[in-house]
Design a protein around this nucleic acid. Structure first.
Length: 333
DNA sequence: AACTCCCACAACCGCGGCGCC
DNA sequence: GGGCGCCGCGGTTGTGGGAGT
């Protein structure tokens, strides 16, 4: 596993390329092909190392390079592929004709990564961040100082904020659970994390208990003060509630009145349609209203679903078409 | 007009994989 | 099987230009 000493060699030029150097490199490659990159600089009359020449050619001078801004489709493809491949820029680049791995990497680091973070998603996992600190700014915004002074003690407010934080984390986790996954009987994330329908059910129940508890949460309004706040207030305060793909289902509120438990039919799973991206946040900009896929219709059925893999909306509807047509995807999947 | 800050992107650096001997 | 040389990849840095003050 030897190391190339070329970059350490003295006297070789580094830094930005001049038009003359570009011309020499292009002229030589057009005439002879690049052959051995190590030998090329000498043959082409360049005072550069082979590595530098290769980089200049592959990232800038190659004739088939597409310049200009990334299109929405390209952006979506990058997100899809990144959610599967991670930082395998060269692998991603093979699916974007005319784009180099370097260009994609830069675009990711300067645009997409920031965008995902801003939307509350972990850029590495493409999942909603569930740590409390990521929701902290939102929680702070929720704190109504006027109400704090006028109606509650500091202790009550502390309890309230803690509860809100817990709910925030639960809802983000719930959203994660409700995302349809390729696996039928379980929602499996990565190899190290498998969550069953039962966990979703338990979480729903815990939210139900929170709702029924006497603890006040949400930003009180004149009408809600002194009563338990509906889950609508959680939905309203949910960081991603503006996204069609990430809404707390409206049916959350309905079953609470006359039922002791939340049935599976009381929630719906938002399906990523065939044109929906893998990264949920993008759906808010590209697919206005993803089709809904019904969850199992009863607790009993939910049990069935766990054992018989009868869950609807499997592999074909989860993965975007662009990936399903892709041999590399099947190789990975 | 001068300065500072920020952003985008080109280029560099170091590591690992692979083929050859 | 091990050493060597080359190539490709991913992370990081450097630089130029535009925006803001």
């Amino acid at each position: 596993m030897g190391r190339s000493p070329c970059c350490d060699e003295r006297g070789l030029k580094k830094g930005p390329w001049t038009p003359e150097e570009d011309h020499k490199l292009v002229k030589y490659i057009h005439k002879h092909g690049h052959g051995s990159w190590r030998a090329l600089p000498k043959l082409a009359g360049l005072n550069r190392c082979g590595k530098s020449c290769r980089l200049r050619w592959t990232n800038y001078l190659r004739p088939d390079i597409k310049r200009g801004k990334f299109s929405q489709e390209e952006e979506q493809t990058i997100l899809n592929l990144h959610s599967i491949l991670g930082n395998k820029w060269s692998a991603i680049a093979t699916h974007l004709p005319g784009r180099t791995d370097n260009e994609i990497k830069n675009f990711w680091n300067t645009h997409l990564k920031k965008k995902l973070i801003q939307m509350g998603f972990d850029p590495m996992t493409h999942r909603p961040r569930t740590d409390i600190f990521s929701s902290l700014p939102h929680l702070i915004a929720l704190a109504n100082l006027k109400e704090l002074v006028e109606h509650h003690t500091w202790e009550e407010q502390a309890v309230r904020l803690q509860t809100e934080a817990a709910q925030m984390a639960s809802l983000q986790y719930l959203q994660y659970l409700l995302q349809p996954q390729p696996s039928m009987s379980t929602f499996s994330n990565n190899s190290n994390s498998t969550v069953t329908d039962m966990e979703t059910y338990n979480l729903l129940n815990s939210l139900s208990l929170m709702k029924d508890s006497s603890i006040q949460f949400g930003t009180p309004t004149p009408s809600s003060l002194g009563t338990t706040t509906t889950l609508q207030s959680i939905q309203d305060s949910f960081p991603f509630c503006h996204m069609p793909d990430l809404q707390v289902p409206s049916s959350f509120q309905a079953p609470m009145d006359n039922k002791d438990i939340v049935q599976a039919s009381d929630y719906t799973v938002l399906s990523h349609g065939e044109h929906s991206p893998t990264s949920p946040w993008l759906a808010s900009t590209t697919s206005p209203s993803p089709p809904m896929a019904a969850a199992p219709t009863s607790i009993a059925n939910m049990g069935d679903a766990c054992s018989t893999s009868s869950y609807e909306g499997g592999h074909s509807s989860f993965w975007p078409e662009v990936l399903l047509e892709d041999p590399l995807f099947h190789e990975i999947a």
